[in-house]
Every structure is written in C-alpha cells, then in structure tokens.
Write a protein that binds this DNA or RNA. Structure first.
Lengths: 235, 235
DNA sequence: CTCCATTTATAACAGGGTTATGAGATACTG
DNA sequence: CAGTATCTCATAACCCTGTTATAAATGGAG
C-alpha cells in the first residue's frame, strides 16, 4: 500500500490524515508518529513541510475555516433573506455536528496567546482586512443580514453589527451543543436554535409570523438538500 | 518557603497552583512537574489526590464553573429583571475576560496535554443532576428569565428554553470575544453585547424602550459595583 | 508500642515531539 | 552530460512529560 507518495502532495495528505485521525480518535490521536504512519512517511515529513506539530494543527484549524466557508457558500440565496439566515445557521451547526473534533480545533486555535495571527476586530475596516479565513465564513452571514435589512425584514442597522449578533448566538448554540449541554441528536435545533433564531429576527425588526414562516421555508429547503444529496461530504 | 504542606490541603493547593500556572503560561504550562514544584511536593501528589493530570484538569474546569456561579450569585436581584439579565451577562463576560485560560479549560476549548474537560447536558432532568456546577451558573440565568416572564417583560414561554437562548448568545459572544474576533478592551460590549441583549429582550417580548432603559440601569449598577470594590477577587 | 493505611519521595519507564545526520531525489548550471 | 546545490525524507537518537513501581515516612487505631 501507498506505493510512493508523489512529490509535493505529502503536505496535503498530512493535513487530510490529521483531520481523519482527529475525527476518529479525538485530539489525543493527532500525533506525529501516527500521522506519519497513516500517510506512509516518517515523522520528518511533518517538520520539512510544517516545521512542527503546532503549525500542522494550525493548518488543520485553517482548513476547518475553509471548509466551513465552502459549506456556507453552497447555501443558495433565495428571495427570503431571513430563511437564508436560518439555512446558514443549520449549515454551520451541521458542519460542527458532523466534525466536532475538527471544529473544536478550528475554534480553539484562534485563541489569543497562540502563535497564529488572531482574527482581529471584525467590526472595523482594518480588522476585517487582517482576518482572512475567519472573515470569509462571517461574510456569508453579513451578506444575508444586509439583504434582510434591504428587504425591510430587519430594521435599518449596521450590517456587521447585526451579523455579529447573529453569529454570536449561532456560535454559542453550536459550541454549547457540541459540549453536550443541549442533548443529543436534533432536539437542540427544534428546542433552542429555531426559537433563538425567531427571537433574534423579531428583535431585529421582523414580525413573529414572518420569522416563523421563514423557519419553515428554511426547513423545507434543508430537507430537499439533505434528502437528495447530503452536503456532508468532503469538499 | 512552603514550610511543610499540611495534610489534606495539598489537593486544594494543587488546584490553586494549576489555575495560577494556567493563567500565567497557558495550557502548556500546566504540567505535573511544574505543578509539583510550585506546591513544593513531588509529582506523586497529583496521583494520590487525583489519579492523574486528566482528573486534575477536570477539577480545574469544575472550579471555573464554581467561580463563575459564585460571581453570578453576587449579582443582586432588582425589580428590573431584564436589567438583572444584563448584569449577569456583564459578569459572565468579565469573568472570562479576566481569566480566559481558566475558562477556556472550563468550557472545553483548551486541552492541556490533550485532556479535555467534559460537561453534561443541561436540558434534561438527569443531565442537570449530573452537572451540578454547570447547572448552577445556568440557573441564575433561568431565574432572571423566569422573573422577566412573570413581570410581563418577556412573553410567556418555557423558562429553560428562553434562558438557553440567552445563554447561547451570551456564551457565543464571550467565546468569540475571547478568541479575539471582536477586538480588545470594552468595545465589544458596547458594539455587540448590549445591542445583542436588546435584540434578544425585544425578540422575547420586551419593548425597545424598556430594554434600552434596562441596559442603562444595568450599566449604572455595574459602575457602582466595579467602581467601588472590584469583583475580580478570588471567591 | 505495634500495626495498618495513607501519603510522599525517588527513580525508573513509556510515549510523545523534536532534532542531527546522511542518503536519495530533483533541478539548476556549466 | 557531469557536477553541484537544494529539497525531501528515513533512521536514530534526544529531551521532556505523564505515569508507575517501590519503599520510606507519616499518623492514627488498638
């Protein structure tokens, strides 16, 4: 097996193997020796390509952001921007639910004190320029928020500020759910995420009726997407 | 120094030292040998008292929850339950801002030595029993939410469900802020946390005017508390 | 005092990340 | 084409950290 790894995709394969090990065995399974064995090379590959495990983990974290952005980008824009926001939320939650270990690294690695350039303030112009991958995922929420404001569903407001509110709530729910605080399975979606979304939409200016209608629309779109061809694959 | 550790508070001192090392050097500094040296004992103490580093980290996580609960318990109940919720939010945020490393462990984002602390489900009866400390912090939000519903500020709703929404949003904001996404200092509070709180309050049934008034009331209380005698001490 | 349980220090072991070194491959240069 | 420089990778060692085996010290029970 593994006849001979072709020249330069060893780096790529290391990251892929790292994500696989992470998904299967959690953070403890992410070890240089296991990684090397998985790819069929020696541990030196980690050092020639990344400089060390820390940098590799960093790359894994960035890959998580990229995957998240890619998934969010697949959410189609409809004429109901609030429903689109719910669609983004479901997608965000689904990504984390499917690969909790990966996103635990992704969100954990962005902590300050780490080596990596931290994503800076997303509510200022300069900050947005400094933050690459993290911002990209955020931008999808911003765009949908902007459309909701333009459509009169949300009150006029700073789109970044409103989107940051939505992102906070969504991220908090997803994080707490991944930590096991909201039970297993899908119950957290119905019991908390959807009511939370309605609360936020209404608080931002939508009516209860329209917000509820949008959750139903989003649920229908979601069923069509995941019913036909699940989006849970590897990009 | 350290004349001779008295019998059974070695356990206590180990946890204290662990929190100190964590605060000063991050997760990587939380090591059995450093810990033992800090307390003035051998590494064996970790094993006789905890069974291993994993259990010690777990105890550190639980201590974080206990401190958080203690801080939240200090927030007085006024006749404005929505203002009280804002007070709880500021306190929650302040705790994490002051001891980000500790709460990164508490919430499971940081994994010293690969050993993550695990928490339990708060939306089920059994889960709530298993998670004493986690629940205690959550209960403060539940209680304030209940009062807001009873006072007619929030629409009638399941108090746990409504509180879970508030907790999600608050936790998400705090987490993202601690990761550096919302800039440094207090700007995240004014730009995002307070607007988020107003959005949620309004979405749950409050009026914009009363919600805004409550944020001001909470800010005044906060200034009085932190202006007089900061609450940043150890429990 | 003697016995027993608990706690602790010492020292070794095990398993990780990392590094030194040299061999092989690759590409550029004359 | 020959030679050389560079990049990549395997081997083997090194260091650090969690852990455990063992025995000494401690302290209460009888």
């Amino acid at each position: 097996m593994s006849p001979k790894p072709r020249a330069n995709d060893v780096k790529e394969r290391l990251v892929e193997a790292a994500i696989r090990l992470l998904a299967e065995g959690g953070p403890e399974a992410l070890q240089a020796r296991k990684l090397a064995a998985e790819v069929g090379v020696s541990t030196m590959a980690v050092y020639t390509h990344f400089g060390g495990m820390a940098a590799l983990v960093d790359e894994v974290a960035r890959t998580g952001f990229r995957k998240l952005s890619a998934w969010l980008a697949e959410v189609a824009e409809t004429d109901d921007p609030v429903a689109d926001i719910f669609g983004l939320a479901r997608t965000y939650r689904q990504a984390v639910a499917e690969q909790p270990q990966l996103f635990a690294v992704t969100f954990g690695q962005s902590a300050p004190g780490g080596k990596r350039a931290t994503l800076s303030d997303l509510t200022t112009e300069e900050g947005r320029e400094a933050a690459q991958e993290g911002l990209e995922a955020f931008e999808h929420i911003v765009r949908a928020t902007e459309r909701a404001i333009e459509a009169g569903r949300f009150r006029p407001a700073d789109k970044y500020q409103a989107a940051a509110q939505l992102w906070s709530a969504l991220h908090g729910f997803v994080t707490l759910e991944a930590s096991g605080h909201f039970g297993a399975g899908e119950q957290g979606i119905d019991h908390i995420l959807i009511p939370l979304g309605i609360t936020l939409a209404v608080g931002l200016g939508d009516t209860v009726e329209r917000a509820e209608h949008s959750t139903e629309a989003a649920k229908a779109v979601w069923r069509a997407r995941t019913g036909n061809a699940g989006q849970g694959g590897n990009d």
